[in-house]
Design a protein around this nucleic acid. Structure first.
Lengths: 112, 112
DNA sequence: TCTTGACACCTAGTGTAGCTATGTGTAGGT
DNA sequence: ACCTACACATAGCTACACTAGGTGTCAAGA
């Protein structure tokens, strides 16, 4: 994914993944890549700080777990987090609608 | 429009407006607000530097005009700019597709 | 055995770019 | 005289994704 296209939309992605159940960071990255068809292949340096930020904001809770010698920090949506997910999903919807209105009539590179 | 949602997507918006014909900066802001149903109400400090950047990148050309005592810098898409518009429109499409795939199944705040 | 690679986490620092704040100047209305 | 709309400009701020480096475990292969 080019440039800083997902600037401001990363939180929504993370919350969306965690809406399907608790996950640890590395698995979230995998899941994001899988669900997006490789489009979102996010570096760890992007995801971990974002998770910390979300937890600090009260949107996630976390706990350490140990799976055959590997420690994991498993994140889970809080009630606030679920609320934020709804809000941000709506905001994303509004944003795309506004973009569509502006882009209406603008031709694609291929299809005429 | 909240936060930095349109980070990385502003160029596309500006190119899209100018695809319908040459415009000066202030009018671009108006048109963006109008077309987006007030969603994009961009400050001048956002738009003018972006236009300068696009011109520097060779995507826009500009010329001064004078309309009853008001000087205007009118911007126009270059051939490169039209190409970039197509590419960015496609990139936007891919981005929203990827977002949709990740967001699939995530409920809205209201509708159950 | 030793190296590689996947797994799993962390963070200091960087860069980009939208935004704030402020400035300049004209024209028209009250 | 003052305010608002029009019209442009830019220095500095800030948020945040990303780079680049680090730590440690475990399994597989050379």
């Amino acid at each position: 994914m080019r440039g800083q296209a997902l600037k401001g939309h990363l939180d929504l992605l993370l919350l969306a993944i965690l809406a399907d159940g608790a996950q640890h960071g590395y698995a979230i990255i995998d899941e994001l890549r899988r669900r997006s068809d490789e489009a979102f292949d996010l570096p760890e340096g992007t995801v971990y700080p974002a998770l910390h930020r979300l937890q600090k904001g009260g949107y996630l809770s976390s706990e350490w777990t140990e799976v055959h010698g590997r420690r994991r920090r498993t994140y889970r949506l809080t009630e606030n987090g679920r609320g934020a997910l709804g809000e941000q999903r709506l905001a994303w919807h509004d944003f795309t609608e506004a973009m569509s209105r502006v882009l209406k009539g603008v031709p694609w590179p291929d299809t005429p």
